[in-house]
């Protein structure tokens, strides 16, 4: 049973999409990231993705790269991640972790899953781990009852969408564009088609990310997706001290257009 099903069920019952906000742990500082996440949760994020800062973030654009570098320069350690997750859970918020795979490998896949679950984390998003290489994680996630969120992309074949959907638990992360993270002016036209293709293979909720920064964009995605993922825009909002306002705008956005029932 998925740990995140309740989030999406609740949103569906309100005929809206879930708002999913991302922030790297340790950004702008370790304590500062807990404060920002608290604001994100209290202002309307249904779920937060806590990012694990990594030295070689190949899927990230300049905004998240810089935030990760700042966190690492500030002395962020992998063990600090669990305290950040715990701070979200303690507030009644819901958190998953988004991480490149090597730090998990180094920590030990089972140990990482154990400590994440103990901190109250609900699952893991793995941008550079495909199901083909995920045997150890499939096992550890079952053992510690965590959701597994793999990614699908516009370039994914039907066969791979099927494999990814069968391997996932909780929801599927659809990358709306071919590219790295970062706010964009327009929502990709590839997103609706990708979500439609995914739905032919699974009943799992599908959340769409990459490039969202405004309430209007969130509303556009909420028309066809179960969740709207926002990352770089939150990082920028931390710098501009506008996190509460951005969260409120996005939360309104995901409520503007009824999502599919």
């Amino acid at each position: 049973m998925s740990r995140l099903a309740g989030v999406f069920d609740a949103c569906r019952s309100e005929s809206r999409a879930a708002l999913i906000g991302y922030l790297p742990a340790g950004y702008p500082t370790l304590e500062g990231s807990k404060d920002v996440l608290r604001t994100m949760v209290s202002s309307g994020c249904d779920l937060v993705e806590v990012g694990l800062p990594y030295s070689d973030p190949v899927m990230d654009g300049p905004t998240i790269q810089k935030a990760s570098e700042q966190a690492l320069r500030g002395g962020f350690r992998v063990r600090d991640l669990f305290g950040v997750v715990e701070s979200v859970a303690a507030l009644g918020g819901r958190a998953v972790v988004m991480t490149y795979w090597n730090p998990v490998l180094k920590y030990g896949v089972d140990a990482f899953a154990r400590d994440l679950a103990a901190a109250g984390g609900l699952g893991l998003i793995t941008p550079d781990l495909v199901p083909d290489e995920a045997a150890e994680w499939l096992e550890a996630s079952e053992a510690h009852d965590l959701d597994r969120i793999f990614l699908v992309a516009p370039s994914s074949t039907e066969e791979r969408i099927d494999l990814t959907a069968r391997s996932s638990r909780g929801f599927l992360y659809a990358t709306s564009v071919m590219g790295v993270t970062g706010a964009r002016d327009v929502v990709s036209s590839a997103a609706p088609a990708l979500v439609e293709r995914v739905r032919e293979h699974t009943d799992l909720p599908v959340a769409v990310g990459l490039g969202v920064r405004s309430g209007a964009q969130a509303a556009e995605l909420a028309a066809f997706a179960d969740g709207v993922i926002v990352g770089s825009a939150f990082v920028t909002a931390v710098r501009d001290d506008t996190v509460a306002a951005l969260t409120a705008e996005l939360a309104e956005g995901v409520r503007q257009v009824p999502s599919r029932a």
């Binding site: 190949v58 941008p127 550079d128 495909v130 990614l151 992309a153 994914s156 074949t157």
Partner: peptide
């Protein structure tokens, strides 16, 4: 066929690029 030399190699990369390496 998936590129493993013993336990080494394989594909630890974003799904978006899998179609290209395939």
């Amino acid at each position: 066929e998936r590129g493993h030399f013993g336990p080494w190699g394989g594909r630890y990369m974003p799904e978006a690029l899998i179609a290209a390496v395939d």
